[in-house]
Amino acid sequence: MLPDWQTMDLQPSWTAFLQSCRALKTKPGWQETCARADGLAQPDNAALRSFFEQGFSPYQVINADGSSQGLITGYYEPRLSGSRVRTDRFRYPLYAAPDDLLTIDLGEVYPQLKDLRLRGRVQGKRVVPYYSRAEIDDGKAPLPGRELFWVDDAVDLFFLQIQGSGRIELPDGSLVKVGYADQNGHPYISIGKKLIEMGELKPEEASMQGIKNWAAQHPDRLGALLEQNPSYVFFRELPNGLSAPLGALGVPLTNEYSIAIDPRTIPLGAPVLLSTTYPNSTEPLNRLMLAQDTGGAIKGAVRADFFWGFGEQAGVQAGRMKQRGQMWVLFPKGTEPTVN
């Protein structure tokens, strides 16, 4: 039995589901399902429940150790102050993807490594790892001229890289959207965990706001801390007409109804029944979400990042969210996974 399924409001989930169909309607196993969705005119909750019950089979997601609970975190679209040119105030660069960054799809050579990609650069006749965050910050990468924007806060830029998308307010008051373009291939390391290990923060203090407060108090140690995370994200400017950031599926995310998942376990675009609690709370949060994004820190079966939307309040919720949860994937009938 799916938690709260009979009483759940499916209307916002339906909006997000139709976005998934924009990307999946020509994919095997999805054509019929998405065609049926297009044929529903202003369905009510009863009709939507019937649509999902008749067309999908739910499977609970289980971890490798047999457990059914996992970590549910949150992310959002932050707002930064920036400029298209460097000034005394705006001096931290937001880079486009560099020309020398290679992406090698290992599955094309070794089918057993499907969905695994290697990023690096050519050095002589060898492919070597791309530059780390420390090397990029030290100016070792050929990035001059690849600056899209300059922003006024190194910590805000760091968290923009973690979130993967955001909006930049320019000096004239206009807002521009930026989104994920590529990544340097290095693993994501949590600086919150590093601060806990260093005895600088207690576990309950290691939220986004707690890290920002620490940074404000220790500006001389900030660079060394940020370099503990060797991962580095590059950006692209997005059309201003987009309603929301584009997720890994290639469609705009839906506030509070899109999640980032590990695509090795959950197929991109699929509906996922998420059963968790609100940030710093025991109040149930049971909702039909859509798996429309991925993230460098989102690894494992029962693991999701909940998209809260744009702005300060969304950031508060995202920064506080470290809940336990369970997940059920809804597979279109006929595409169910093989169970041994």
Rank of each mutant, 00 (worst) to 15 (best):
Q42K: 14
G210L: 13
D153H: 08
Y75C: 06
A318G: 08
F56T: 08
P187C: 10
E283C: 00
T338V: 13
V109E: 10
R91C: 01
Q317C: 01
S20I: 08
E108W: 05
R119P: 00
Y75N: 04
L253K: 05
I191N: 08
W150E: 05
E227A: 14
E197A: 14
D262R: 07
N184S: 10
P203I: 14
Y110N: 12
L2G: 04
Q60G: 04
D65A: 08
L113Y: 06
Q228I: 12
K299H: 08
P187H: 13
Y110D: 11
D182F: 04
P203Y: 08
M208A: 07
G66D: 06
W5L: 09
V127K: 09
G173K: 11
D305Q: 06
Q60V: 08
V61A: 04
Y75W: 02
S281C: 01
L94C: 09
V302N: 01
Q183E: 11
L273C: 00
T335H: 01
R324K: 13
A248N: 14
L175N: 07
A16W: 04
L222E: 10
H218F: 06
P58L: 07
R126T: 10
F51K: 13
S132E: 07
D137M: 12
D153W: 02
S57Y: 07
P230I: 15
L48A: 04
L249P: 02
L118Q: 13
L195N: 06
M8D: 00
I259S: 01
L285T: 02
Y110C: 09
F51C: 08
E283L: 00
Q60F: 02
K333H: 03
P98E: 09
Q228S: 14
A64N: 08
R167W: 02
P271S: 09
N229F: 03
G145H: 03
K114H: 06
P129Y: 07
V272A: 04
L238A: 12
Q123G: 01
V302I: 11
Q228D: 02
P219D: 12
E256Q: 15
A260I: 12
